[in-house]
Nucleic acid binder design. Structure first.
Lengths: 158, 158
DNA sequence: CCTTGACATGAAGTTCACTTTAACTTGCAT
DNA sequence: ATGCAAGTTAAAGTGAACTTCATGTCAAGG
């Protein structure tokens, strides 16, 4: 019953809307697993599709792949995950999203009060110093994930 | 009156809460300017502090340095910018923040309705497919900026 | 005058989440 | 049997926004 119908990587990539290279990368990062054919090619069970949906959803919430890997590792290894399992995993996202929304809202309200004054003081302005969290996070880029980026027409009309 | 009191890079870095290397980087990216001493060391006018506050605020709103550079280039070159100038620059952020907040709120509401079902369908789930915008943005990382990241205690209790 | 800490430069490294490239192998249809 | 799309690997590249490093110079106090 749960035999056959294993997907090759290109097929899975199409269905998931990802590049094959992304799937190989996810596997190397311990996010998904595959069986191999005699010749060494990857074959995926259909359950992987749900896993990929979870990964995408988690990314949209703002989790890093490492955090997602860690979350996925709490799934039962033996039986295949139930709806309840997936629901449990995604439950904590709500708080995270609430936090993000709150932060942005504060920023916006700070902006509203700042627009009139144009103060932009490094110390006092709510805009340049939102949560007094100005600390560095080490090297590397920090920018917005796809959900938050405007992709539709970059207008330079500031 | 507007003479003297030029800040060396370390001083400016302290006051702005940035590393000297960041300031040099900003200068190389055309975001800030400096005069030089006879020996070639950078000296900054105090107005640069306001500029840095603007840069930080813009980053918090989600603008890239290139977008910020472009915005700053619309400031008057001759006279020093007035409050009105700064206010004009930051006015368009409100719409951007509104967009971001809306997007996140939709995601959260989608989550709320998904939590019970645990469906996580790649095609239908609002979580894994928020705005039907699943398209790739090319290579490179896409993750949350500091404002949106939890820095306080990583709890792996999903 | 001399020491010492701050500064300068260019090149390379870092992070994350992937993609691209190069060189080679599988697997399915004809 | 063969042709060719699709698969494999390791290594290097990408992008943003910086940092780190190596090597050498400046400036201010003693």
């Amino acid at each position: 019953m749960n035999s056959a119908e294993l997907l090759p990587i290109g097929e899975l990539a199409n269905r998931a809307g990802l590049a094959p290279s992304a799937l190989r990368y996810y596997e190397s990062a311990g996010l998904i697993a595959s069986t191999r054919t005699g010749g060494g090619q990857r074959r995926y069970e259909r359950g992987v599709l749900r896993r990929l949906a979870f990964i995408r959803a988690a990314q949209n919430v703002g989790l890093s792949l490492e955090e997602i890997r860690s979350a996925l590792s709490t799934l039962p290894a033996q039986r295949s995950p139930t709806r309840a399992d997936w629901a449990r995993l995604s439950r904590s996202w709500r708080a995270r999203l609430d936090e993000q929304i709150t932060g942005l809202t504060q920023l916006r309200d700070g902006l509203t009060s700042c627009i009139g004054c144009g103060c932009l003081s490094l110390q006092r302005c709510a805009l340049s110093n939102p949560n007094d969290a100005v600390a560095a996070l080490g090297p590397g880029a920090r920018f917005l994930p796809s959900v938050l980026r405007r992709t539709t027409g970059v207008r330079p009309d500031m």
